[in-house]
Amino acid sequence: MSNFDPNAILRGAQLTFVGAHRALQNPDLFTTTHYRQAAIAVCAGLAIRIILNIPIYAVKFALLVTSLFVNLDQETWDDKLVNGLDFISKSVLQVPFFLMMVMSSITPTLDNLFMDSLAWVDRTYLQKHKAEDPSALRGLYYPTLSMYSTHGNREKKEQRTPLDGLISVGMKYSRRAAISLAIYALTFVPVIGRFVLPAASFYTFNKSVGPVPAGIVFASGLVLPKRYMVSFLQTYFSSRSLMSRLLEPYFSRIRFTKQQKKIWFLDRSGVLFGFSAAFAIMVKVPLLGVLIYGIAEASTAYLITKITEPPPPPGSETKLFIESEVRWKNKHLLLNLPIAKLDEFNARMTGAETVAKSSVPETPRRTFA
């Protein structure tokens, strides 16, 4: 529960707004290149949305034709059918979110946006602390992170194509959509249907964040209407998937093992959920979703500077750095920081300092700028 407590979620939500504000101050965010790529992404997303919604359009057209011969003004089943299909498309199958995943897998725009924003965060930090002793400042993120390859060796780079990324996203989405549809269909089964969503949510939350949040969600699922429960669960799943995609530029350079990455996410789960939940909802907005996704990626560069330490240059120290980053050492400092100081937080902690600070409940000497 400690990783997913309300304070951690609230702090993540605060980082959302501070990070977005910082990202939007970056003049490089509004370059012609980004605008052109955003326009292409919007048009592509609109085309894919139309293709995926063809079955819904077909049903609506059939109802329109039927209304010419049958008076449907006094009927309600047709409205329920259309609303149900829209709900399945947006909340169960998460079609708008799928579009964002497709865009991020076939274009390097978001990776470039992340790195440009990371450089901006570093420049802003140096500007704010130019009068201070350079040796007392935190290390920079962009110069060393830009040294890392995003593709590993050249052979893998040559074999990887945008089509490969599209196929990978499509397979993951298809598997997730099939499971979502199956669970949603089971909710209509008499007697056991009302327990399907609570049980599925308990299993997922218990596996991800522990039994206490899982128990709360399970109890809520027994009394809340099914529509609200589905929307909540899909928002949670979408936020997790979104956060994973937003952090891809970082993890494609700093290569954790699968187990290390799992612990990394679990240790920061509350903050990451709070950060990504608002973006997961906003990316569903038609047409504007792609632009919001870009702002989310730019904001993630700011988030990285709060929940990780600056990486060393590629080399022998990288493995030790990754091992030290699996656990979030400055969590208690960030979560207990007043919101007015949030933008100034930059902890520089070694393993020894971490032990000392966690065992002595005193104000840190030089934690805040």
Rank of each mutant, 00 (worst) to 15 (best):
D133G: 08
I322N: 11
A280H: 06
K306M: 15
P108T: 07
Y148V: 04
T235R: 02
S299W: 08
P96W: 11
L242H: 04
A298T: 01
R49L: 15
C43H: 09
D78Y: 08
A278H: 04
F275I: 07
V65H: 04
N346D: 13
A296H: 07
V230H: 00
D122I: 02
E344C: 06
S208Y: 09
L222P: 05
V217A: 12
S168Q: 10
K207S: 14
S231Y: 04
G152Y: 06
L222W: 10
Q37V: 03
Q159G: 10
K284Y: 11
I192L: 01
F265W: 08
L99Y: 01
V355E: 10
N3H: 11
K261M: 12
N7T: 15
T204E: 12
L287E: 03
F273S: 04
I183P: 00
Q37Y: 06
S91M: 03
E158T: 11
L140Y: 01
A47S: 12
L288F: 15
V18M: 05
P249S: 10
G315H: 10
G12E: 03
I88R: 00
V82C: 12
V271C: 10
N112A: 14
A119E: 15
A39S: 11
D86F: 13
T32N: 08
K341I: 02
V285N: 12
L288T: 12
G45P: 04
K80I: 01
T76K: 03
S316F: 02
K130F: 06
T16S: 14
G210S: 09
M349I: 15
T107E: 07
I88E: 00
Q260T: 11
I40K: 14
S174K: 04
R348P: 00
Q259N: 12
T32W: 09
R175I: 01
I192W: 00
A369F: 05
I48C: 14
I339F: 13
Y302A: 07
R176K: 10
T109C: 05
F97N: 02
L266M: 09
F205R: 01
M282D: 10
F97Y: 06
F87P: 00
N206K: 10
P162W: 06
T33F: 12
G221F: 00
K331M: 11
K157I: 00
I50H: 09
S67G: 11
V65T: 07
V121W: 00
L288C: 12
A280T: 07
A369T: 03
N206G: 12
T363N: 09
K341A: 13
I263W: 08
K331R: 15
Q74K: 06
A277E: 06
N346S: 15
S180V: 01
P225M: 10
S238V: 05
V223Y: 07
N3K: 05
S2M: 10
P249N: 07
P55G: 13
M171Q: 13
L163E: 08
R49W: 15
A280R: 02
Y148H: 07
H21P: 00
I295C: 11
K284P: 04
A44E: 13
N83K: 08
V102G: 03
